[in-house]
Simulated assay, not measured.
Amino acid sequence: MLLFTFLGTSSGVPSLSRNVSGLAIKNTKNRDWMLIDAGEGTQHQILQAKLSLQHLKVICITHVHGDHCYGLMGLLASAGMNSRKENLIIIAPKEIQTWLEVTAKLTELYLPYPIQFIDVKDILNQAFHIDEYLSIQCVSLHHRVPSYAFIITAQHVQKKLDIETLKEQGLPKGKAWGTLQQGNDIEWNKQIFLSQDYVQTSIQQVQAIIAGDNDMPELLSDACKTANVLIHETTYTQAVLDKVGKSPMHCSAKMLAEFAESTSLPNLIATHLSPRYHDKQGIQTIHDEIAEFYRGHFFIANDFDQYQLDASAVLI
Rank of each mutant, 00 (worst) to 15 (best):
M1H: 14
L7A: 03
V13E: 11
L16N: 04
S17K: 10
R18L: 06
A24T: 02
I25C: 01
N30S: 10
D32I: 01
W33A: 00
W33K: 00
M34W: 03
M34Q: 08
M34Y: 03
T42G: 00
H44K: 11
H44T: 11
Q45E: 11
Q45M: 09
L47W: 05
Q48R: 14
L53T: 10
Q54R: 13
L56S: 07
K57H: 13
T62S: 15
H63K: 07
H65G: 07
G66S: 15
G71H: 00
G74I: 03
G74Y: 02
L75F: 02
A79F: 14
M81Q: 06
N82D: 04
S83C: 06
K85R: 09
N87C: 09
A92T: 11
K94G: 10
K94S: 15
I96Q: 02
W99K: 09
E101K: 14
K105V: 03
L106H: 09
Y110I: 11
L111Q: 08
L111D: 10
Q116D: 13
D119I: 08
V120I: 12
I123E: 12
N125T: 05
N125K: 10
Q126G: 01
A127N: 09
L134K: 00
S135N: 03
Q137C: 01
H143C: 02
H143V: 02
V145K: 13
V145N: 07
F150M: 05
A154I: 00
Q155S: 05
V157I: 15
P172Q: 01
K175W: 07
G178E: 15
L180V: 06
Q182P: 04
G183F: 07
E187M: 04
Q191K: 15
D197F: 03
Q200T: 15
T201S: 12
Q205D: 09
Q205I: 09
V206H: 00
I209H: 01
N214K: 13
P217W: 06
E218A: 09
L220C: 10
T226D: 14
A227T: 13
A227S: 15
V229T: 12
L230A: 03
Y236K: 10
L241A: 11
L241H: 10
D242G: 02
V244R: 09
K246C: 02
H250V: 11
H250S: 10
H250P: 01
C251F: 09
S252N: 06
A253H: 03
A253G: 06
M255I: 02
L256Q: 07
F259N: 08
A260I: 04
E261V: 04
L265F: 12
P266L: 13
P266S: 12
N267L: 09
I269E: 05
H272Y: 05
L273Y: 07
S274E: 07
S274H: 14
S274A: 14
S274V: 05
K280L: 04
K280P: 00
I283L: 12
Q284T: 10
H297A: 06
H297S: 12
H297K: 12
F298H: 05
A301G: 06
D303I: 04
F304E: 03
Y307H: 09
Y307V: 00
D310S: 02
A311G: 09
S312F: 12
A313E: 03
V314K: 11
